[in-house]
Computed example of a mutant assay.
Amino acid sequence: MRPFSLSVLTLVASSLAAPVLSDGHSSKALEAAAKARNANMSMIGYHMGVLGSMAKGEAPYDAALATAAAENLQAGAAMSRIVLYLEGSEQGAVAGSRAKAEIWSDSAGFEAQAIAFETAAAAMVTAAGTDLEALRGQMQALGGTCGDCHKPYRGPRN
């Protein structure tokens, strides 16, 4: 039996390694992370909408509903970014991703914005159940943290 040549071994090794991308993550893992991130952002947006409709007077203020929405919002904000933001899952690299490469090139800035959002979401839990004026006041602060992160770290819709 003749031994494999180096070129055959190289070909086999490179074909096995091809699905592995940035930081050792497979393309499947990067796509899954982007999908999970998008789902988390959709849930955050849904709960922001519940709170926002009350703040704008489009829906009646309901302390129990507002508190529940704020608690869910807080849970979404607190999700570990290490699994949602895999390097290599940026816009242009993974279908459906709007994450800009700046998330990883400016990871300290991104983390600071994420912590600001978590803090504002935690404060919303208290404000939401207090009264309509407290909810409105915290809604403005919370919404500001969204824009502060989306501007530098979220790409346009494609």
Rank of each mutant, 00 (worst) to 15 (best):
M41C: 00
H25F: 13
N40S: 02
S5G: 15
V8I: 14
N158H: 12
G144Q: 06
G57D: 09
L73Y: 01
S97A: 06
V83K: 04
L142Q: 05
N158G: 12
R2L: 14
R154K: 13
V50L: 06
F117K: 01
V94G: 01
M48L: 09
G144N: 03
L6A: 15
L73R: 01
C149P: 05
M48S: 07
V83H: 10
A75K: 13
G88Q: 00
S5T: 15
L11I: 10
Q113A: 10
P152E: 06
G57K: 03
A13F: 15
S14T: 15
D148T: 09
Q91K: 12
A55L: 04
G144C: 06
G88P: 03
A114M: 11
M139D: 05
K28F: 13
L21K: 10
A36Q: 11
G92H: 05
A33G: 10
R157T: 10
K100F: 03
P3S: 12
E58D: 15
W104A: 03
A78M: 09
I103M: 07
A69G: 04
D23I: 02
A70K: 02
S26M: 10
M124H: 08
Y153V: 03
P19D: 11
D131K: 01
A123S: 13
Y61G: 10
S22W: 01
S97M: 05
S7V: 15
G52C: 08
E87G: 01
A141Q: 14
S14R: 09
I82L: 08
Q138W: 11
S97G: 03
S5L: 14
N40E: 07
N38H: 08
P156V: 13
A34M: 05
I103R: 01
E90G: 07
L65H: 08
E31A: 15
V94W: 02
D148S: 12
R136G: 09
Q113Y: 01
E71C: 07
G24E: 06
A66L: 07
A64Q: 11
M1N: 11
M43I: 09
D148I: 03
G96Q: 08
S53W: 02
A134N: 12
R37K: 04
I44H: 00
A33S: 14
A122S: 09
R154F: 03
S26A: 11
L65V: 15
G49Y: 08
T126Y: 02
S15Y: 10
P152V: 02
L16H: 12
H150I: 04
A69F: 04
N72I: 00
F4I: 11
G49V: 06
V83F: 13
A78F: 08
G96W: 08
P156Y: 07
V125L: 12
G109Q: 07
Q138T: 11
Q74G: 02
H47E: 12
Y153L: 04
H150Q: 06
R157E: 12
A127I: 05
P19M: 10
E87K: 06
P156E: 14
A77K: 01
R37H: 04
A64S: 12
G137S: 14
L11K: 13
A99G: 02
A93H: 09
A101R: 03
Q138C: 08
I115K: 14
A64M: 06
A122I: 00
Y46R: 07
H25V: 09
V8C: 05
A18G: 07
S7R: 15
S53M: 13
G57V: 09
A13M: 13
A55E: 06
G57S: 08
A127H: 04
A121D: 06
N72P: 01
A63E: 07
Q113K: 15
N72T: 03
